[in-house]
């Protein structure tokens, strides 16, 4: 285990070496975790997006660092490889002067068949204030909350949830359309592709409906089972034209190549023909509609290149917004909002 663990001191540029008393871990009872959005009210989520505005401003300064989380330790616990997400959290923590420890168990024998409690209890001796957890199986971040007093941020668990991705998508959306508390009212988000296997789809559906938008899910029935229509505020269609028509934002999901081998799709060509976002199909979207993709983008598969590179595309802004959103999440959980 020690081999996978590397503590890195991220002392801010401008501090005295005077040791501060350790910040107490957040007390049980207040809002402690970001696992999904079930426990978060619309007001709290809007406040998170407002905090993101502040963090984004910090990142435009010459010295992109504030002492907000000085003396606190954030541990990234990645049981599944994801360099981009881990680096984004890492940057978000360091930009607020937190110390960062990273534990990577992806691909190792540790990832399978271990007692999660045993793993966490060991790591817990290192006194992190917050864990950022990524795991290939749904529910692991929820399970971990039972065995630690530290805060837990779900950085993606199986097909279940990826709340910071959804928050950065919502932030990107609000950035584009403006408006404060009512930015999402009466708006429509279409999510296209492999919904069944997508934590991004689940989290976005949950967040956007909670913020007041309408969500349409679209994909072939093998990747979009009808039970999704049971989600509140969500409708389901298997026709791309129907999903895109009048939509303010269209999000294409990643399509894993392995889906083809499991009988879920007849062929890539058939998928592209039916569900690729093209200029032609985007013409029926609402005026000023945007195109989103959680990345990494496989060109001319989920999205035609001209759309991905066109003026509707906000794919690059999504990536850029990852850090301020995660800064806001860490800040809110470790320091609090109001």
């Amino acid at each position: 285990m020690a081999a996978g663990l590397s503590a890195v001191d991220a002392s801010p540029a401008t501090t005295s070496p005077q040791p501060e008393p350790r910040q107490a871990r957040p007390a049980r009872g207040r809002k402690q975790h970001l696992l999904d959005f079930a426990d978060w009210s619309r007001e709290e989520l809007m406040a998170l997006l407002d905090t993101t505005d502040v963090m984004a401003q910090v990142l435009t300064r010459t010295i992109k660092k504030v002492p907000a989380l000085q003396g606190m330790t954030v541990a990234t616990l990645f049981f599944e490889d994801s360099t981009r997400t881990r680096l984004s959290f890492d940057r978000a923590a360091r930009a607020q002067s937190a110390d960062v420890m990273s534990f990577a168990a992806g691909g190792s024998s540790l990832a399978k068949g271990e007692s999660l409690r045993d793993t966490l209890r060991t790591l817990d001796q290192l006194q992190a204030d917050l864990y950022v957890v990524r795991h290939p199986v749904a529910g692991v971040p929820y399970q971990l909350t039972r065995w630690t007093d530290a805060a837990i941020v779900n950085a993606g668990d199986g097909r279940r949830a990826h709340p910071t991705q959804a928050l950065l998508d919502a932030y990107t959306f609000r950035q584009r359309f403006g408006g404060g508390a009512s930015a999402f009212e009466g708006k429509r988000l279409a999510i296209v592709g492999d919904v069944e296997h997508s934590r991004v789809a689940r989290s976005n559906a949950e967040l956007f409906t909670k913020l007041g938008a309408e969500v349409v899910l679209c994909g072939p029935a093998t990747l979009l089972p009808r039970e999704f229509a049971a989600l509140p505020g969500v409708s389901v269609t298997h026709r791309l034209e129907e999903a895109v028509e009048g939509a303010d934002a269209v999000m294409a999901l990643r399509l894993q190549q392995e889906r083809m081998t499991r009988g879920l799709l007849p062929s890539l060509a058939e998928y592209v023909a039916r569900y690729q976002l093209t200029e032609r199909v985007m013409r029926s979207a609402a005026e000023g509609a945007i195109v989103m993709h959680p990345g990494p983008l496989v060109r001319d598969l989920e999205v035609a290149s001209d759309v991905a590179d066109g003026e509707r595309s906000v794919i690059e802004q999504q990536v850029a917004n990852g850090v301020p959103v995660r800064m806001a999440v860490l800040y809110t959980l470790l320091v609090g909002q109001r």
């Binding site: 068949g113 271990e114 007692s115 999660l116 045993d118 199986v137 529910g139």
Partner: peptide
């Protein structure tokens, strides 16, 4: 065993 029931839901 308890350890087996403290794994992730797939394993």
């Amino acid at each position: 065993t308890r350890a087996e029931k403290e794994r992730d839901l797939l394993s």
